[in-house]
Amino acid sequence: CHSECLGNCSQPDDPTKCVACRNFYLDGRCVETCPPPYYHFQDWRCVNFSFCQDLHHKCKNSRRQGCHQYVIHNNKCIPECPSGYTMNSSNLLCTPCLGPCPKVCHLLEGEKTIDSVTSAQELRGCTVINGSLIINIRGGNNLAAELEANLGLIEEISGYLKIRRSYALVSLSFFRKLRLIRGETLEIGNYSFYALDNQNLRQLWDWSKHNLTITQGKLFFHYNPKLCLSEIHKMEEVSGTKGRQERNDIALKTNGDQASCENELLKFSYIRTSFDKILLRWEPYWPPDFRDLLGFMLFYKEAPYQNVTEFDGQDACGSNSWTVVDIDPPLRSNDPKSQNHPGWLMRGLKPWTQYAIFVKTLVTFSDERRTYGAKSDIIYVQTDATNPSVPLDPISVSNSSSQIILKWKPPSDPNGNITHYLVFWERQAEDSELFELDYCLKGLKLPSRTWSPPFESEDSQKHNQSEYEDSAGECCSCPKTDSQILKELEESSFRKTFEDYLHNVVFVPRKT
């Protein structure tokens, strides 16, 4: 048989008469490798580009789960590009990614509803959504962080984005990388972005840091009482949809009607710091009717980097990364020049730590249904340095008659930039024990000054392991946590139920 035959053949030295091919099969003959313009397919066939392209389009058009959109890589027609490569849609070739590779997620039936953290986790790592997304989240724990972890990498949506009755959302900033909504599939009414009845939605994105392009379709905003109209108009300008909307697409009466839409800028007039305090004062603000001013709200939190936005980490279910302080308005003076500047002394802060701070007014709604208010920009203030805590785990070892090696770990709280350490030492008198000992005694162990690591005695271990207080009263049991108490109650309830079950099964009433 021919060298490319495997198993047997019907005619000697003829690659077209093989029972099976050793390498690849091409047009009725066995070959060692697939010549151009053919590609290896499933490690035994040679196919042309049209064959591989037909497989790709067949799966793409069917949208069946589990099928493969075949691509070409290293002269092979394979189910998908290997790690580190992405497909070129024009020629199906796998090309190296520039940075992290995109991950295209194809949605069944063309859309997916995100109504819980669990459903959001199914899209973790996706960068391109081939379909439409509907966000409908009523509640949950730590929602802002969970949504950002699972949806934060999405850069492109081919269909539309719909935010509907998501009472738990305060902001859409968890879509931190969303840059493009194509609108290839539109919501009824030709809408590519749809926001309806979101009672706590206050911000779409921080438009000073976020760009969003909507290729096709219109915007729809109705019944978002805490979303200011200025935020919607800003989205029109940034996304390129200005002029597409009709009169009733953006409701003037049901958007922002319960919001404090600040239209003035508060400026800080005085800032002073110490290692654990920050004193702030800002310019006074009074609405047209000074009785509408209820006070100020001061927001602050630790910020290692200057990239904080107002609604980071917030949701309507209680999660809030900001510390909020309510401040009463100052006494009002008739003389504008003698107006008191409101302020606040922030206490209990960490030394040498940068804080993000902003302040906003708290006002009631005027009778004319106009909203007044003022808010400052987010500023960054760093507390002063102070003395560091003591170095940890000092170790001293003498390696000769004239040297001592000293080692330690950095302090747990540096409280500033540590530039150097101060080492103090003092000579001590020799131990009298060394002169009084009889060095001729056998088995004498000389006193040693070398360091030995501390260890816990058996008594201390027994005390720590004991669940009861000892007789001397030195140790006591740790208080039980809520989960331990709940577990004990469940076990007790189970024992009672099981005992009742045994009584009912074992003891049967005697027939009379």
Score class of each variant (00 low, 15 high):
103 K>E: 08
104 V>M: 11
105 C>A: 15
108 L>H: 15
108 L>E: 11
109 E>I: 15
109 E>R: 15
109 E>V: 15
113 T>A: 11
115 D>P: 06
117 V>F: 15
117 V>L: 09
118 T>Q: 01
119 S>R: 09
123 L>F: 09
125 G>K: 08
125 G>S: 09
125 G>W: 13
126 C>E: 00
127 T>Y: 07
130 N>W: 03
131 G>F: 03
132 S>G: 12
132 S>A: 13
133 L>A: 07
133 L>Y: 03
135 I>M: 07
138 R>W: 05
139 G>Y: 11
139 G>C: 00
139 G>L: 05
140 G>S: 07
140 G>H: 15
141 N>Q: 05
141 N>K: 12
143 L>N: 07
144 A>L: 05
147 L>S: 03
149 A>M: 10
149 A>K: 10
149 A>L: 09
152 G>W: 05
153 L>N: 07
153 L>E: 09
154 I>C: 06
155 E>M: 04
155 E>I: 09
155 E>R: 14
158 S>W: 13
159 G>S: 04
160 Y>I: 11
161 L>V: 09
163 I>C: 04
167 Y>M: 15
167 Y>F: 09
168 A>R: 15
169 L>S: 07
169 L>I: 06
170 V>G: 14
171 S>V: 05
172 L>W: 00
173 S>W: 12
173 S>I: 11
175 F>S: 01
175 F>Y: 03
176 R>P: 06
176 R>S: 09
176 R>Y: 06
179 R>W: 12
179 R>I: 13
180 L>Y: 12
180 L>T: 12
181 I>L: 13
184 E>W: 07
186 L>A: 09
187 E>F: 12
188 I>F: 07
188 I>T: 13
189 G>F: 04
190 N>R: 04
190 N>C: 13
190 N>H: 07
191 Y>L: 04
192 S>V: 06
192 S>A: 12
193 F>K: 00
195 A>V: 09
197 D>S: 08
199 Q>F: 07
199 Q>C: 01
200 N>S: 05
202 R>G: 08
203 Q>D: 06
204 L>T: 14
205 W>H: 13
206 D>A: 14
206 D>R: 10
208 S>N: 12
209 K>P: 10
209 K>R: 09
209 K>V: 07
213 T>K: 10
214 I>P: 00
216 Q>I: 04
221 F>N: 00
224 N>T: 06
225 P>G: 05
227 L>P: 00
228 C>F: 02
230 S>K: 14
231 E>V: 04
237 E>W: 15
239 S>A: 13
239 S>N: 08
241 T>S: 08
242 K>W: 14
242 K>N: 12
243 G>W: 05
243 G>R: 08
244 R>L: 08
244 R>M: 11
245 Q>C: 12
245 Q>H: 04
248 N>R: 02
248 N>K: 06
251 A>F: 12
251 A>D: 06
252 L>S: 11
254 T>E: 04
255 N>V: 04
255 N>W: 06
256 G>T: 02
257 D>G: 11
259 A>R: 04
260 S>R: 06
261 C>K: 02
263 N>R: 09
266 L>E: 00
267 K>M: 13
269 S>D: 10
271 I>S: 05
274 S>R: 14
274 S>N: 02
274 S>P: 00
279 L>Y: 15
279 L>Q: 04
282 W>K: 00
283 E>T: 04
284 P>C: 04
285 Y>T: 02
286 W>E: 08
287 P>N: 04
290 F>S: 13
291 R>A: 02
292 D>N: 04
293 L>N: 03
294 L>R: 05
296 F>D: 10
298 L>M: 13
298 L>V: 03
304 P>D: 14
305 Y>M: 08
305 Y>Q: 14
306 Q>K: 15
309 T>P: 02
313 G>R: 08
314 Q>F: 04
316 A>N: 13
323 T>I: 14
325 V>A: 13
326 D>K: 00
326 D>F: 08
326 D>P: 01
327 I>G: 03
328 D>F: 07
335 D>G: 03
335 D>F: 06
337 K>F: 04
339 Q>D: 05
339 Q>I: 07
340 N>H: 07
341 H>R: 11
345 L>Y: 13
345 L>R: 04
345 L>Q: 15
346 M>R: 06
347 R>E: 08
347 R>D: 07
347 R>W: 08
347 R>K: 11
351 P>L: 02
351 P>A: 11
351 P>S: 10
352 W>F: 14
352 W>Q: 04
358 F>S: 11
359 V>E: 00
359 V>H: 01
359 V>F: 02
360 K>N: 11
360 K>W: 09
361 T>Y: 14
361 T>H: 06
361 T>V: 07
365 F>L: 10
367 D>H: 03
369 R>W: 10
370 R>Y: 08
371 T>P: 08
373 G>C: 03
373 G>T: 05
375 K>L: 15
377 D>H: 04
378 I>P: 04
379 I>S: 08
381 V>H: 05
381 V>F: 02
383 T>K: 00
383 T>C: 12
384 D>V: 14
385 A>P: 08
385 A>E: 04
387 N>L: 10
391 P>D: 00
391 P>N: 00
392 L>S: 12
392 L>K: 13
393 D>G: 06
394 P>F: 02
397 V>H: 13
399 N>W: 10
400 S>N: 11
402 S>N: 14
403 Q>M: 08
403 Q>R: 09
408 W>H: 00
409 K>C: 15
411 P>L: 00
411 P>A: 04
